[in-house]
Simulated scan of single mutants.
Amino acid sequence: MTAWARTLLFRLVFYVGSLIAVLAALGLARRSAPAVRRHAERWVRFHAWCAHRLLGIRTQVEGRLPEGAVVIAAKHQSMYETFELIRLLGEPAAVLKRELIGIPLWGRVVERYGVIPVDREGSAKALRSMLHAARRVVAEGRSIMIFPEGTRVRPGERPPLRPGFAGLYRALDLPVVPVALDSGRMWPRHGAKHAGIVTMRFGDPIPAGLSRLEIEARVHAAINALEG
């Protein structure tokens, strides 16, 4: 089967299955957030099954998965890691664009799951709102997952970190676990997906309390460790 045939089959199976999952989650959203999170775990396992069986893509983990509440700062090259990191880490709360909350049906579900919406305009009010949501998540004992470069990038690209990351780091006083990955080689933003192994390298925890320049430099270097 060609790469395009595998890609089209994946899209059919995964997106139809995801529509069913979102509709089921709407009913669960009336009950409790933990019920939605358990449902989300099944969804991300379904994504991993589709990626492995239909596309021939699987994950190789290097380093140790973090324990306890931390800030997960990851490279972002594809949709793949947005699902796979949740599968590996349990129930982290992702920092995501506020406009995604407005997507019909899906937005209501992810809001109930417990995420941290961020306004890209970066106003003081938006930052306060993000920090309030982040503190609520940490109080629940959950980790926070953020893509500090702010958007998906192609393999080899190393944009600077967005300023909101340093603000979150200072406010939460939590260690940061950087994650380097190379999903973009198999999962380009456009075009067919290719079989292969995605490496996710979890770095050693970086302690809280560092200066902005030091934390940004250390995280930027760590998440780009697979870029060659």
Rank of each mutant, 00 (worst) to 15 (best):
V179R: 10
H47W: 13
P148M: 11
D204F: 02
G17E: 10
R152M: 07
N224T: 14
A69P: 08
A35K: 04
H194W: 03
L19F: 15
A25D: 14
S18P: 05
R64I: 01
P104V: 07
E121C: 04
V118N: 05
S32Y: 05
V70N: 01
A94W: 02
C50P: 05
R45L: 13
G150R: 00
I103Y: 09
D173V: 07
Y169W: 04
F165R: 05
A166S: 12
P175L: 02
K75W: 07
G141L: 04
L26F: 03
K193A: 06
V70D: 09
C50H: 08
G114H: 07
E41Y: 04
T7W: 05
L19T: 14
A139I: 00
L131Q: 09
F147V: 03
R170F: 08
R6F: 01
A40C: 14
R162A: 13
A3M: 02
I116F: 06
L9C: 14
P175S: 05
L55T: 01
S143Q: 08
Q77T: 00
T7M: 13
D173A: 12
M1N: 07
G17K: 01
A139D: 12
R58L: 00
R201Q: 11
E157Q: 11
P66L: 01
A221N: 07
R53F: 12
V13W: 06
V109D: 09
T59E: 13
R135M: 01
R30N: 06
V177E: 03
L54E: 09
R45Q: 15
P117M: 04
R30E: 09
R120Q: 01
P163R: 03
A221D: 13
R38H: 13
R152N: 00
I101W: 11
L181K: 06
L131I: 09
G209Q: 03
P163G: 05
Y15T: 12
L213M: 10
G209I: 03
R170E: 14
D182A: 08
V110I: 15
M1D: 11
L12M: 12
L131V: 02
